[in-house]
Design a protein around this nucleic acid. Structure first.
Lengths: 356, 356
DNA sequence: TTTCAATTTGCATTCGAATGCAAAACTGCT
DNA sequence: AGCAGTTTTGCATTCGAATGCAAATTGAAA
């Protein structure tokens, strides 16, 4: 009954008769046997801060190296109730902004000793499934940069899985959030554009259910009003390049007299819009039309675009997200926190004095 | 000693005295107790194809739903020796081509019931670490789209972890590979360019240690020779936009008389090269200079570029990679396989008749 | 050298699901 | 009803590491 190490026949017990079965990976028992110590000792050697003498550690480590032993994270997870896995939810629709965030987050997680379990989410049902999957895998936490309904969030809450939202949150429900609030920069930029003589503008928004889109749209509208710039048209896109191009056409059909400025709520649409203006409509940017975007994705800075935009500090935000998730894993009942970062205006060649 | 379900005091044993501790997640024992059946029955209910009567399944599922029970994938992994995790290694250096692959692979894995454990790898030491991490987490397999040395591969081989390489392989060592061989398309395209009057070309390569770069460069050189197009310059880049721009400058300094054609071994560099030509050097593309790339990334098709390129069938390749990894997980000793896909020429506006 | 505290070590149990085997419950047939 | 054959069910064990507790060792003080 006693937990004698690995194999079956209790009669021929006691010594290292049992060779490592070819291909079987070494366990702590194998290491223990080879080093002539107990399994607990091996375990403690691999747990930082455990009570172990230097001599012992040396012996164990030597045996461990010989057997290429590495603790089994699965078994460890079972007993410690910590999987060291964090589910990262991103939208699969290539926004080109997500990959940057994703890679940053993965790296940050990695240096916190956590592993990213990647999920791509494109609709509510996906989210549903992902939540169940994450639950099965006992993830220690979730970082969500994709859509999630309040009901879905409540499920995670009930199950006591910490969630950090990236650039989205529920206004009427406590939650932990990393967020970029570019209101200040929107004002700064639009003031500058007003000074450059712009008086008529159009907006290309994202999907109406998308929070980032709504917020950005609101800020832009407020700011336009503040500086006395009229909104002559508004088109809805879906964050893609194509929808930016289509958006401009839509604007054109709404206002026969094209505005001098188009504000797109993300860079990808701004690029689509810019290309449509120049390549299709033959409208020169920025001479005849100024365009601005949001996000600060890398390719917005390519020479063909030189997009004027408001960048999110992705690096710091990712870092913050990971920090927050680890904090919440340690102290789950700790109160929620919302970390809001400023944006930063990236000046570019896509704006100019309004044509007269 | 018997494995009586959850709690400590054996004297007050036997009935459902023990309420679910608040916040503790339900286990198969909890479900079994509620449904009045054995734990094994619960387990079998969640294992497809197990021997279970309809009546039993119904009872168990009802209880399971009530307790929001989902099998613990960690515990399951421990006993079955299958973690259902696959390590996906991608380069963190934003090539913009990796995200597409990554998302595709993740989706494919997901529909095969596997989860992607994401690792970003930027250098050999990273790979080293990643391999150990993957080993700890008992991943069922590895899909590698990043650099890995032969020694590192051998470690995985010795540990019997199946590996599928994505667009790279070892010529002198058996391995399982998904690969795109665009030789045919290179010929097709260069023949066309020869017909268009191009006689002098330059190449912008990737890092010399990179296999994809070497192969593509070789194909291009062969093909250029075949069609009697002279290679007047060759610059080395690192797959980034910036290095494409720098590459053109390099070419310019190598050949005072600029060639009429520049072939870049990936799209990102081709875009950098194109922008440098037009925005900085004032060389018109394609009228004065034709440019082609490799990969077929989405943004190459944006109106500002309309890049002529050779696309990799990423969707099919990802699918194949996942299929191969699952196959190898099932039958690890099965012989290796190499699946080679053709490329496809995407015609675009970045090439034209050579200037006279 | 003895004694007592402090540190190390080992024992035995635990985490939660899967599974070989045997017992039990059905099924159909005479 | 009785019996063989089949299907379901439950029992007990297993996977590999962590840990509370007690035993053993070490070290220092007397």
């Amino acid at each position: 009954m006693a937990n004698n190490p690995p194999k079956k026949n209790p009669s021929e017990a006691d010594d290292n008769v049992i060779p490592l079965i070819k291909g079987r990976r070494a366990t702590s028992y194998d290491v223990a046997r080879l080093a002539g110590v107990s399994q607990s000792a091996v375990s403690r050697c691999f747990k930082p801060g455990a009570s172990i003498s230097g001599k012992m550690r040396e012996r164990v480590m030597k045996a461990a190296k010989e057997l290429e032993y590495q603790p089994n994270a699965i078994a460890r997870g079972l007993i410690t109730q910590r999987s060291n896995l964090v589910a990262v939810l991103v939208s699969g629709r290539l926004n080109l902004y997500y990959p940057e965030v994703l890679f940053k987050i993965t790296e940050e997680l990695s240096s916190a000793g956590l592993r990213a379990l990647l999920f791509t989410v494109d609709n509510e049902e996906d989210t549903e499934m992902v939540i169940e999957q994450a639950w099965q895998f006992q993830v220690d936490g979730v970082i969500s940069a994709s859509h999630m309904s309040q009901e879905q969030y409540k499920v995670l809450e009930k199950r006591q899985i910490p969630v950090v939202f990236f650039n989205r949150y529920f206004a009427d429900h406590p939650n932990t959030v990393v967020y970029c609030d570019p209101a200040e920069q929107v004002n700064e930029l639009l003031e500058q554009l007003q000074t450059l003589g712009h008086r008529r503008a159009a907006i290309i928004t994202g999907p109406s259910e998308n929070m980032v889109s709504r917020e950005r749209t609101r800020m832009v509208e407020d700011s336009l009003a503040k500086f006395g710039i009229e909104t002559v048209a508004q088109a809805q896109g879906d964050f893609t390049y194509e929808s930016g191009a289509a958006g401009l056409q839509d604007i054109k059909s709404q206002a026969k007299d094209l505005p001098s400025l188009v504000i797109c709520v993300n860079d990808m649409m701004a690029m689509g819009c810019m290309d449509e203006a120049q390549s299709v409509l033959g409208i020169s940017v920025p001479d005849e039309l100024s365009i601005i975007g949001f996000d600060g994705i890398g390719m917005g800075q390519f020479a063909s675009y030189e997009l004027t935009t408001i960048r999110q500090p992705i690096g710091r935000m990712s870092e913050a997200a990971v920090k927050m998730i680890t904090d919440r894993v340690e102290r789950p009942d700790q109160s929620h926190e919302k970390r809001v970062f400023e944006g930063a205006v990236i000046p570019g060649g896509s704006i100019a004095r309004a044509p007269t």
